[in-house]
Design a protein around this nucleic acid. Structure first.
Length: 650
RNA sequence: GCCUCUUUAGCUCAGAUGGCAGAGCAGCUCACUCGUAAUGAGCAGGUCGCGGGUUCGAGUCCCGUGAGAGGCUCCA
């Protein structure tokens, strides 16, 4: 007998060699039906694998990441089997389960090109294989045998993977006619895979290295129920409707022009209005936090970036230097603002009493992103950072860091951003070559960040080896409509630039000292931030941000004069209004303006004119009844103020 | 940059097999002067992304090129 310990610490005796499936069955038939994988003493296992000794276990169902993982990993093998039967001689790279589904990287040789049209055929073969109910069989194997097997198949990718394995135990999994190198775990057999959809084909470099061969990657997803697949596909459709590129076009916020160049956004009046409101807001907040505005040109001497080290590291990613015709001097379109700010710091001498100094600039920068990387407003070649650089004494670092966290949290709150993730990126201590600066400084900077996030109660993920070469950082990430993760806010500690630009301050000891620099950008870039904001709100912006806040709808042309009067009164109170003077019926005007996501619609006709009133309609919320113009004005302004005030006190 | 796909009117999209470029919405004109999510009629609008080629004939087939989309370690 062996002792099995459950997650709630209860224990139970079982015969030696019992499987996860049998344990689940002993608890309930329903659980047995749903269990997909098992954690045994911290290792993920197949539920069909016999447990030979005392163990702590956790059973995983579809609802658990581990359960889905086994399901999708098995699906990847199933797809591989289908591919091998359709395209003999195919070679396989890697085929893991991912966040939503799975993929497999394959090499079909030089003749065969896979296209979307081939996917239904592969799906069909997968269904046929599912019907065979083949079991997934695990087998321990020696490295030599493993190499022999794939050598025989001529699969150089698997050979490379096996050769790189150092942890001793190598396992194969087979189902039907297909055998793969795999750590597992897998389902007992293929029968739970009820719904299959292959989603797309993409090129993927072998091991992510663009110097190496590009394989064909096939993405797919599977579910235990057909209904779940339908729901998933529907969810994808819904997400597409929130896409900032689509909404940006609909609401006329921004556009791109081939003549101007790809990756160079053009802000239309309504988008520029939104952008200006955000910038005004942030400027106001920053003044409160003691930031000083600075302004620097769009180009800088190449030497500036050689000094900063950016030229060496990011020169390829910059637009190439502009040469002056006579002197032959070289200038770069600025890829970042920090070197300029360092020179502003250097223009004066500083006492320890002056620090911290916080320079803020909405600086537009230009980076030569690869054409394939460009994406709507989230990845562009010209964008405006809400940038600032804080120069402080080492003893002020933590406090300053906390203040920056405060400012970012404040701003996110003002915009109803709550589902962000924070990530601390620290250095990889085993790879000292990669980083500059003394151990002591790194220790200080890293602990300052960790302590600061602890004090603010932020739940953070810590990533080792992800720090910038000049210092550790804290990033704020959010997801877009399609689930892709984007970095927005960032706070970075930098010992490098003060060194390179020889920044100093005079300490109380009358000696020169090096300040520490903090780079920070709460939005990251205006472009990316607005893209994410659009997707989060589906274009229904907070009242204070909406480009048009109120639209006045006259019942008929007779009422246009009164509409103008209302508009003027509201405009005088800083409310942004439009009038829909079209010769349309009121129902049509309401519909069109609702679709434009204008927060308030005011309907005016004979009934309203009598007592200087307006009929109020709130976007998405229908008729709110009549109100005097004056009352609406106050109601509206109070709403905007309360919104901003309520954030202030938090 | 590389792989796959897309590119037709301002927008969304139809246009097997090569044979006279279409619809809905938006726009303009006219009628109606209207009460809470689409009034009706008419008009106008395209060098089919661009450049070559095959053909009697190309939106459609071939080659090149621009732009856009999805993807390019989430590691057996």
């Amino acid at each position: 007998m062996i002792k099995i310990t459950f997650p709630d610490k209860n224990t139970k005796e079982f015969n030696q060699g019992i499987t996860g499936y049998e344990i689940a069955k002993s608890i309930s038939p329903r659980l047995a039906k749903e269990v997909l994988s098992i954690t045994v003493n911290g290792n993920l296992w197949d539920i069909s694998r016999p447990i030979k000794e005392d163990a702590e276990i956790v059973l995983h169902k579809w609802e658990d990441e581990e359960g889905k993982h086994a399901f999708w990993h098995s699906s990847a093998h199933l797809m591989a089997e289908a591919l091998e039967s359709l395209y003999p001689g195919i070679k396989f790279g890697i085929g893991p389960a991912i966040e939503n589904g799975f993929y497999y990287d394959v090499d079909l040789g030089n003749e065969k090109i896979l296209t979307d049209a081939d996917l239904p055929k592969i799906e069909q073969r997968m269904r046929e294989l599912v019907a065979q109910k083949n079991t997934y069989n695990r087998k321990n194997i020696s490295k030599k045998e493993a190499l022999n097997y794939f050598d025989g198949k001529g699969d150089e990718y698997k050979l490379e993977l096996i050769n790189d394995l150092t942890d001793g135990e190598i396992t194969f999994y087979s189902q039907g006619n297909f055998t793969d190198l795999c750590r597992g775990p897998h389902l007992p057999d293929t029968s739970p895979i009820k719904a299959i959809k292959l989603l797309s084909i993409a090129g993927a470099y072998w091991r992510g290295d663009e110097q190496r061969k590009q394989l064909t990657r096939i993405y797919g997803i599977t579910f235990p129920k057909k209904k779940m697949l339908d729901e998933y596909l529907e969810m994808l459709e819904e997400a597409k409707k929130r896409d900032h590129r689509k909404i940006g076009k609909e609401l006329q916020l921004f556009t791109f022009s081939q003549k101007v160049g790809s990756g160079l956004p053009l802000w239309l009046p309504k988008g520029a209005m939104l952008r200006d409101r955000l910038i005004d807001f942030l400027k106001k907040v920053q003044v409160r936090y003691g930031y000083l505005p600075v302004s620097t040109p769009h180009i800088g001497h190449k030497d500036l970036y050689v000094t900063s080290g950016h030229y060496e590291k990011y020169g390829k990613d910059s637009f190439q230097p502009i040469k002056t015709p006579n002197e032959g001097e070289e200038f770069l379109l600025k890829p970042m603002n920090c070197p300029h700010h360092c020179e502003i710091y250097n223009s004066q001498q500083h006492s320890y009493k002056d620090l911290p100094i916080r320079y803020a600039e909405f600086g537009t920068v230009y980076r030569y992103e690869q054409s394939g990387e460009l994406h709507g407003l989230t990845r562009v070649r010209g964008f405006t950072q809400d940038d600032a650089h804080i120069f402080c004494r080492p003893d002020q670092l933590k406090e300053e860091f906390i203040k920056v966290i405060d400012i970012i949290l404040y701003i996110f709150k003002a915009l109803d951003f709550d589902n962000f993730v924070t990530q601390i990126s620290l250095r990889d201590k085993n790879d000292k070559e990669k980083y500059i600066g003394s151990d002591e400084n790194w220790e200080k900077a890293e602990s300052a960040i960790i302590e600061a996030t602890n004090e603010k109660g932020l739940e953070t993920i810590i990533e080792y080896g992800e720090a910038a070469f000049y210092g550790p950082k804290l990033d704020f990430m959010v997801r877009d409509a399609i689930g892709r993760k984007w970095q927005l806010g960032t706070i970075q500690v930098d010992y490098n630039l003060p060194e390179r630009f020889e920044l100093t301050y005079t300490g109380s000891d009358n000696q020169k000292h090096r300040p520490v620099m903090i780079h920070r950008a709460p939005f990251g870039s205006m472009e990316r931030f607005i893209a994410v904001l659009i997707e989060h709100t589906a274009g229904k912006f907070p009242l204070w941000l909406a480009p048009d806040q109120v639209v006045i709808l006259p019942i008929s042309e007779k009422h246009n004069e009164y509409a103008k009067k209302v508009s003027k009164i509201l405009n005088n109170s800083d409310i942004r209004t439009l009038i829909d003077e079209r010769n349309e019926k009121i129902g049509k005007k309401i519909r069109d303006n609702e679709l434009k996501r204008i927060p308030y619609l005011l309907i005016v006709g004979d009934n309203e004119i009598q007592n200087e009133e307006v009929s109020v309609r709130k976007q998405g919320d229908g008729d709110k009844g009549k109100m005097s113009i004056e009352k609406f004005k106050n109601y509206f302004n109070e709403k905007v103020e309360n919104l901003l005030k309520s954030i202030d006190t938090k």
